[in-house]
Amino acid sequence: MSSALNPRAIEEEIVRIRERESNPYSSGVKTNIFTLLIFRSEDPEKPGASDHVEGALQFLLGKRPARIITIRHARSPKTEVWVSGRCFPDRRNRGVCFEEVRIESGDDGVGADPGAWAPLVIRDLPVFAWMPDGLVEAAAQWAPAIRGAAGLIDKLLVDSSRSEEGREAVVRALQQIRDATADAFLVSDFSWRRGKVLREQAARAFDPPEMRALIPAVRSARLYGGSRMEAWLFFEWLGSRLGRPVSGDHAWEGPLSEGFRLTVTMDGASDVEIGCTRGGCLSRGEEKGAYRFPSDGEILLEEVDTLTRDAVFGEVLSRGRGSG
């Protein structure tokens, strides 16, 4: 139901919905453990526009109770607000709920202003801001609002792979966001988190004692799979870990969820081949077990459970300034 953008009325509506949605027989305490602000920039009319966001939220539902506030620009003269809720009973019939507020900021610009949604944030609990759509456009649309609410936000989540612009533009947007906000709150990138499977397999391949001795001989890497940004972040990570530039060739683009193949070229030694498919991983000719690739929901869950700075990600972004 559409409501006026009145914080008190919204809070009252949330209480009413909670009472209706939650299990009357559950003795569990009605609680929240964080607020998630979702800043949308994708056209909602675009086919599949909301699928990845809804998929991730569905994964979270029933695991972490939270207030979810979604804000987007709309083609209407006035800002409108919808309040809703959903609870998921677990095996013990306890309800773990989302309180949801959707703000569609109209031509009046009211809904986009931090003053409109800041009073709805639950005080004294962590606040996560998430820009799940194309980073370049999202940064252009929302960076001022987020900067304006810097004291309110603990961590900003972005996905640098969700942009149609060129890699340079995305890297620049990512660095701009981080530069503008790094001191105020943490910044985390879903693409960096997805790329952990690459970093992990590479690190494990070079972990046996005989392979560690060969690390200085690493010359270049060729990657089949992953997005442009995932590949770029991987090559930059490799260079930052080795303390020198490593030439990277992203030979083929494809979703990491389907797998990847990585060839590390060595000076004076055989290439190191690492590959994963849905069936499992193979490294230097040996089976390395199942390929566990995290969904966006799993990444979101991990992100809202941690408030620590990823120093390596920071190093990689700083390093990429020159090569981006």
Partner: peptide
């Protein structure tokens, strides 16, 4: 044994 710099910060399970 020589360190493996690639492992740093990975937080592997």
């Amino acid at each position: 044994m020589q360190d493996n710099p690639l492992m740093a910060g990975l937080g592997l399970p």
